[in-house]
């Protein structure tokens, strides 16, 4: 009984789930968008300026993280104590100091670039691990229901009420403060989010006719989960994962603030914000630039995720297909419809 109560709760974890949950055509929707193919999705993207810009920003940041560190060489670690805290936005000291220098005279630009890789190499694996473990577990628990579901939900409760700070200290103490270990902590603490969402979706799906049909034809539970449940649940979970990237970046930065996150000489955006905070009054750029990097990345990812959510949902998709002017004109018309 209890499980059905949380079901709705977990589904409501994210807005993405709602259109699909409300309109019964979730599964059909996915098929439709697949038939349309990638090209039309791309055209739709170009129609939405905000989404296009977001996509470009993300691609740019992704490329930076991928190849930037190699281009920067040792610029990010080259210190010059006589050249500390130089103000940004001037080419007087060469392009590498366009964003100023940090408290040890290192190029802010180079450090931001190198930090982007660390930031993503923490955020993406943490989200990926939590997503995979949490989703599979949740789908499995939701499909089978009964004690498996109950035990899983109680485990999620346990993880959620466990202080992640303690985990961080334990990991730092027993292992070493590497980014791999930060990934471990963040992944572990975020598993319940996916677990709860996936379980709710899957619990609802397992009672649907197409799953029933598969069952009557003698398909094994695991095969049904893989073939019928996961494909339907996946878009919701992926959208959730996009939102979670932001949370994980912030969590990593909070750990740095408390002194138990990424440790120098490694550098991440979160660590840069945290280390730069003491210079807020003397050299604001040390913490503002990495902060802006986090905010821009998050907004871009969110805008794109929101767009993708609509674009893959047949009940909403017409909004994107319409030319902008007609779209705006249409809504009031709809509202005043008697």
């Amino acid at each position: 009984m209890k499980s059905s109560l949380t079901e709705g709760a977990a589904r409501a974890q994210l807005p993405a789930a709602l259109p699909e949950g409300n309109s019964d055509g979730t599964s059909n929707g996915k098929k439709d968008s697949k038939q349309d193919g990638k090209l039309s999705l791309f055209r739709l993207l170009l129609k939405d300026r905000f989404a296009t810009v977001s996509a470009l920003v993300l691609i740019l940041i992704g490329l930076t993280a991928l190849i930037g560190p190699a281009l920067m060489g040792d610029l990010a670690t080259k210190q010059n104590l006589l050249f500390a805290n130089k103000a940004p936005f001037t080419f007087a000291h060469g392009w590498e100091y366009f964003l100023g220098s940090d408290s040890l005279g290192r190029s802010m630009l180079a450090r931001l670039v190198v930090a982007s890789r660390t930031t993503f190499s923490v955020a993406l694996p943490a989200v990926a691990v939590a997503l995979i473990v949490g989703s599979l577990w949740g789908v499995w628990a939701g499909y089978h229901r009964g004690w498996r579901e109950n035990v899983s939900m109680r485990i999620a409760d346990v993880i959620m009420s466990f202080p992640s700070l303690l985990l961080a200290v334990v990991v730092l103490y027993v292992f070493s403060p590497s980014s791999a270990n930060i990934v471990l902590i963040l992944a572990l603490t975020r598993i319940p989010i996916y677990l709860r969402t996936a379980r709710a979706e899957s619990a609802e799906l397992q009672s649907r006719t197409f799953v029933d049909a598969a069952r009557t034809f003698g398909a094994k539970p695991n095969a049904i989960i893989v073939r019928h449940v996961i494909p339907v649940v996946l878009p919701t979970l992926l959208t959730l994962a996009t939102l979670e990237c932001c949370y994980v970046m912030l969590a990593e930065s909070s750990l740095s603030f408390l002194g138990i996150g990424i440790q120098p000489p490694d550098v991440s955006w979160g660590l840069m914000v945290s280390q730069g905070r003491q210079y807020l009054q003397t050299a604001w750029w040390l913490s503002i630039f990495p902060g802006v990097a986090i905010v821009v990345t998050t907004i871009a990812a969110n805008v794109l995720a929101a767009w993708l959510r609509i674009a893959t949902d047949p009940a909403q998709r017409w909004r994107l297909a319409l030319p902008r002017k007609r779209l705006i004109a249409r809504i009031p018309a709809k509202e005043t419809q008697p």
């Binding site: 909070s254 603030f257 907004i299 805008v303 809504i331």
Partner: peptide, 28 residues
């Protein structure tokens, strides 16, 4: 009330920015 209207755009931009600022930094 007006999906993709000006109010929608502004509020989603503001809310996303709000949700992605490191809290300790904001506090200081």
């Amino acid at each position: 009330l007006k999906p993709n209207g000006i109010a929608d755009r502004i509020s989603s931009f503001v809310s996303m920015a709000a949700a992605s600022i490191p809290d300790f930094w904001l506090a200081i």
